[in-house]
Nucleic acid binder design. Structure first.
Length: 804
RNA sequence: GCGGGCGUGGCGGAAUGGUAGACGCGCAAGAUUAAGGAUCUUGUGAGCAUUAUUGCUCAUGGAAGUUCGAAUCUUCUCGCCCGCACCA
């Protein structure tokens, strides 16, 4: 009888549920291990075969750690607020809450069908008021510290979505969701002051074990740059403006200044003669979406304001231009232009015929800007100096004169935290009629999202919540009237701290108990997709550091080790998508091959972080291996092949077994599952050649394979006579002495090429090995007629004869 | 343009300075004739030589280098992927 995956998988899933097998233990005598998945957004599509790749990796780790005697926290939950559900609800007339619940039920069914060892008592859901109470609470703490503030900002407005989106949600000038154009528009919005943590977010990357590319992306996003802020006077007026530059040493080469079209001073400095042109340029810039602005970046545009500034170094008058190559959102929104030594300024100066004044030797300014290092010229007190020295000297000079100072700037901007949509956490703020703004008192949290029938975005920049007057209008105990904030939080809010709630999910009094957090944090292993490298993972680190500062969490970083699983591609090597018709549904795989096969195949495909095409043949191969394991131990009548088992240990499988325990344990630890599986296959291939199998080895093997294929291994474990689940069976150990043979193969080389092999005693010394090599028939052939210059002997491994 | 990564059989991939191609897929041969994606054993980078155990040559995108020895380290170069992109 062939292995019946449907029966066996159902049986053990039921067993685990009935026995609370995966309930988190909190034994003070054990060490703790926190294995975390990026919780999913429960979409209407259901689980994708990409989801189980990361989930299986953490599940294997969690299962191994349990067997190794750790308390293991391995939870799952739902990132259930967000645009897609709301969009779907709008399109179909569904209630997003109901629709989301259906999706969650489906996701949970699918996840359970794959045999993941989650502790469902700790399930969380970001849309549950008992959860978002603490999202709101954290927002209030930020507000009290001045880190959550309301501000008129130039924001990314998406008319198609009817909401603003954060900078991080704009990809190539379009919204991440839907790919809609984005316009810069001034709007009053809630912001979180993530920039206050810029340096710590940057520096603490050194403390964590994350992929280098993710760290680099974060460094890049934070974009710290050191330079100077310098004040320029506007000629013939009392006005001044600041610029930021990383090259204060080139101040003598400044021949003009540029302000962004949105700069505050534009109206005040523009001369009447230039007014019409400036006006037209500013309007035009306003109309363009970000995408159009960057698309047109090939050709610089700009307009002269008619005004002049004074170069503080030379005292000369320099024209002030306007151009959208200067961004209002970076630095001071104005620059000093050094066309001789900056490629952008060079292009602009060439186009508009502005003076180009070299101040560093090297390059040819008739051809291109010279941005390299060199000796300064035409720069009075900087003449003769190199770049670094000149920068230092100039900073001193600026500071002395009181017209400039050293300054650090960041590309990262504050986090736009409000959305004009319904399906999100309400921001717990009340705007009072006397013009003040206050928090919803903590004892009134959670501030629940009201049920509404019409949740269409107004399109005017107001949230649909504004229409629910019963909810919006409030009166305090003194009769003062107020209106609730109607913007909601972005989807990233709940995911910025959810991993903390798993630690203490039912706590009514606190976000989570500090002592419990001390026991579990930081998360030991966090696995998810690379698409969250900057956004989610930067927000989380910011929230965590804030919560650390106010004494809620005990660690400065949330996730000690992060790993990005790759993508599962379609069998045509392309990203799976409905339109390409290459989507594989995990339900179908579980039905046909079983969960163990799916888990095993996804781990065997290749390295966990690689993106690899799906192969039905490969999937079948994984099933074949599991069948092979089954048949090795179970006969056609579904009975254990007891006659094959022996209580003796040792024999021909001894070395292979110990090697397997060692390799598999180490490979699991390093998430090298594909290699671990190949070693398990080697052992089974060896075992097939033997008539008898030591029972110890068979049991050890079953435990090693159990994290990957838990259902079948539980069944085999039971057949071997165990009446309890193997969940807490002790992890196999190996004897290092069993790994070394008395006899080893020594490779014999001549000039680095393999010319023979000799099987000798492991302890054989250098001299004997050299002698064996030199007397080897084939080696002799290759050194005949040559001088032996040197013989390199690596005992136990190799002998290389160098002959010329 | 800048930053990061990758390039190994027909395919997915092993090997992180010491026998290149573990393991799997595919393919082939043999055994077997179980009804279902069969199973078991063996072989399988290319080429040459050999009755043969076997030996030799070439081979990790390309070129050069370091080294007794390089898929692995260095430089250049080509190609692909990811991220950022007028950030002053």
């Amino acid at each position: 009888m062939a292995y019946d995956h449907k029966k066996v998988e159902k049986k053990w899933q039921q067993y685990w549920q009935d026995h609370d097998s995966f309930k988190t233990t909190e034994d003070p005598n054990k060490k703790n291990y926190y294995a975390l998945d990026m919780f999913p957004y429960p979409s209407g599509q259901g689980l994708h075969v990409g989801h189980p790749e990361g989930y299986t990796a953490t599940d294997i780790t969690a299962r191994m750690k349990r067997m190794q005697g750790f308390n293991v926290l391995h939870p799952m939950g739902w990132d259930a607020f967000g645009l897609p559900a709301e969009q779907y609800a709008l399109d179909t007339g569904h209630d997003p809450a109901e629709f989301t619940q259906e999706n969650i039920n489906n996701f949970k069914r699918q996840i359970n069908s794959l045999g993941f060892s989650y502790d469902w008592d700790r399930e969380i859901n970001t849309t549950d008021p008992n959860f978002y109470k603490w999202t709101q609470w954290t927002f209030e703490q930020m507000y009290k510290k001045g880190l959550a503030y309301e501000s008129e900002e130039l924001v990314n407005w998406s008319p198609d979505l009817g909401t603003v989106v954060a900078n991080e949600e704009v990809i190539d000038g379009k919204t991440e969701r839907g790919g809609f154009p984005v316009y810069r528009k001034p709007m009053k919005q809630w912001m979180l002051k993530i920039t206050a943590y810029a340096d710590r977010l940057l520096d603490d990357l050194d403390l964590i074990d994350w992929p280098e590319n993710v760290k680099d992306m974060q460094r890049n996003w934070i974009g710290r740059s050191e330079g100077a802020q310098i004040t320029f006077d506007v000629a013939d007026s009392d006005l001044k403006f600041d610029i930021f530059t990383t090259r204060p040493d080139t101040l003598f080469g400044v021949t003009y200044a540029v302000m962004s079209p949105e700069h505050k001073l534009v109206n005040q400095i523009t001369t009447p003669a230039q007014n019409a042109m400036v006006d037209a340029y500013v309007k035009q810039a306003e109309m363009k979406s970000d995408l159009e602005r960057t698309d047109l970046a090939k050709e610089k545009t700009g307009v002269f304001t008619g005004a002049y500034a004074i170069n503080p170094a030379t005292g000369e008058r320099i024209p002030i231009w306007l151009s959208d190559y200067v961004l209002s959102s970076y630095g001071t929104g104005a620059i000093m232009a050094v066309p001789a030594h900056d490629t952008r300024d060079y292009e602009f100066a060439k186009k508009f015929g502005i003076d180009i004044q070299p101040v560093i030797e090297g390059g040819d300014i008739s051809q291109a800007a010279y941005t390299g290092d060199g000796v300064h010229i035409n720069s009075q007190f900087l003449d003769g100096l190199g770049k670094d020295e000149a920068i230092a000297r100039m900073l001193d000079w600026l500071t002395d004169k009181g017209i400039g100072e050293k300054k650090v700037n960041y590309k990262m901007r504050d986090w736009l935290f409000s959305r004009q949509r319904y399906w999100g956490e309400p921001i717990p703020i009340i705007h009072w009629e006397d013009g003040t703004t206050g928090l919803v008192p903590e004892d009134q949290l959670p501030l629940k999202l009201p049920k509404m029938t019409d949740i269409k975005p107004s399109g005017t920049g107001e949230s649909p919540l504004a229409n629910d007057l019963d909810w919006v209008n409030v009166v305090d105990k003194n009769g003062r009237k107020g209106k609730r904030e109607t913007n909601t939080m972005p989807q990233w809010a709940g995911s910025s701290w959810y991993y903390l709630r798993y630690v203490d999910p039912h706590n009514d009094a606190k976000l989570a108990d500090y002592k419990k957090l001390q026991q579990w944090l930081p998360v030991d292993l966090y696995i998810g997709g690379a698409e969250h490298a900057v956004r989610h993972l930067l927000y989380v680190r910011f929230w965590h550091k804030f919560l650390y500062d106010i004494g809620v969490v005990p660690t400065v970083e949330p996730f000690q080790k992060l790993y990005n699983q790759g993508m599962v591609l379609g069998d045509n090597h392309e990203k799976m998508s409905k339109s390409k018709g290459n989507v594989v549904n995990p339900d179908d795989v579980v039905e046909e091959y079983g969960a163990d096969t799916l888990r095993m195949y996804e781990m065997f495909m290749g390295p966990l972080d690689a993106s690899i095409p799906w192969s039905e043949k490969g999937l079948a191969g994984s099933r074949r291996f599991l069948d092979r394991v089954w048949r090795l131990l179970v006969d056609d009548d579904d009975n254990l092949r007891a006659d094959k088992l022996t209580d003796k240990v040792g024999g021909p499988l001894k070395k292979a077994y110990h090697q397997t325990v060692k390799t598999v344990t180490e490979d699991y630890e390093q998430l090298r599952f594909n290699v671990a599986i190949s070693q398990l296959m080697v052992f089974i291939n060896d075992a097939y050649k033997e008539d008898t199998l030591p029972r110890d080895y068979v049991e050890g093997f079953i435990l090693l394979l159990a994290p990957i294929a838990p259902h079948m291994m539980e069944e085999l474990w039971q057949k071997l006579g165990h009446d309890e689940s193997l969940t807490y069976a002790p992890w196999p150990t190996y004897d290092p002495n069993a790994l070394v043979d008395d006899q080893v193969d020594i490779v014999l080389q001549v000039n680095g090429k393999r010319r023979g092999v000799a099987t000798v005693s492991r302890e054989l010394g250098k001299d004997e090995l050299e002698k064996i090599a030199l007397t080897n028939e084939n080696v002799e052939k290759f050194i005949a007629g040559k001088d032996v210059k040197k013989v390199i002997v690596v005992p136990g491994k190799i002998v290389n004869v160098v002959a010329k």
